[in-house]
Design a protein around this nucleic acid. Structure first.
Lengths: 191, 191
DNA sequence: TTTACAAAACTAATAAAATTAGTTATTATA
DNA sequence: TATAATAACTAATTTTATTAGTTTTGTAAA
């Protein structure tokens, strides 16, 4: 290897710092090279280009989000696990707004590796939902519901979609509680 | 006026066509000028620049979405109104993926006009929820919940977040039903 | 009908960004 | 110590947004 201690991981972490502080749309090869103290073309020794960089950020972000959620659900089950995991999700988005945005590439990108990483989150949720003893189809609906709900809340908050009138954390708890209670009730009905 | 029948509205509609077919990230002044049959600098007679164009698309998109929702709730009340309106929302996103993406500018843009347009949707939801006789704070929570849920679902679907295993429309109905039932139950409890 | 003004098109030029090609320097290892 | 690979560099190209300044054209007043 030559010169500086720059590798794929260093580049990725520098990019994360930029998007979390300056905003996802302000990521550029020029800015990234500058923070690393190298010239722009040198970046091409580590990433294939801008779209490759964005793809790698997506995979990296999804995996870090998944780890955060997994961590938050350790030792908990059922409703408690869901709450802890949902709260961890929202916190992640607040701490890493740019990285979270990176996890949501436009449909036109549609990459195999990104889709695969996303399945990790779905599987995690399915396991946490096992306590509810749902039938397979209902479990899938519930996973989709939970993802929609948590992503929707975090995403709207990120885009400043809520005014300041009322504590947003209370709203989130209210939302999650209402939905999870409904799931629970549906599960009991099926017994 | 001179030459062609191009005005702000024509430009906006051409831009909508581009983002809905080619994707939001493929909007450029160059592409837009080409579809209008003019040279790039001529666009500056109608919009102030790229970021102004994006801002105008955001406001335009939010207002069209609001009209779609308002239309869908005419003559209905309570749960029926919510269902019709939610379904209309999801359909809108499917028909106008690019325009919908335009309605969600990064937090750093934070424009007064955009925020104001967004309030229109909040007010519409508040009126539709009047049938549930919620207290003011609970009504706000419910509006936030509904927006999170519907936006989250539409947004994940748009980003190909769901696999094909199960009918997504059934999942959406399931989600909305579970949540609205919960709201209704909460409302009755408070009486 | 002619003239004058304003709006909207144009050309030319600049700046910033991504990317490619080709070259030089450095470091690990044979 | 020599060499091969890696990663930095410079130079050049392309694309895009944007600005300045000019020309054209349609409307409305004289």
């Amino acid at each position: 290897m030559a010169r500086k201690g720059i590798d794929r991981q260093t580049v990725l972490e520098a990019a994360v710092k930029i998007i979390d502080t300056e905003g996802f749309e302000n990521l550029s090869m020029a800015a990234l090279a500058k923070t690393l103290g190298i010239k722009t073309p040198s970046l091409y020794n580590h990433v294939k280009g801008m779209s490759d960089l964005r793809k790698q950020l997506a995979v990296y972000g999804i995996n870090r989000l998944k780890e955060t959620m997994a961590e938050a659900s350790i030792g908990l089950s059922g409703k408690n696990a869901i709450f802890s995991l949902g709260t961890a999700y929202v916190s992640f988005v607040r701490e890493h707004p740019g990285l979270y945005e990176a996890t949501l590439p436009s449909a036109s990108v549609l990459d195999e590796e990104i889709l695969h990483a996303g399945e990790g989150i779905v599987n995690l949720l399915l396991r946490v939902l096992q306590d509810f003893h749902l039938e397979h189809e209902d479990a899938i609906h519930a996973v989709r519901g939970l993802r929609s709900l948590v992503h929707g809340f975090a995403s709207l908050e990120l885009k400043n979609g809520f005014n300041m009138e009322l504590d947003v954390d209370v709203s989130f708890k209210h939302l999650l509680e209402t939905y999870v209670n409904g799931i629970e009730r549906g599960s009991k009905k099926n017994k």
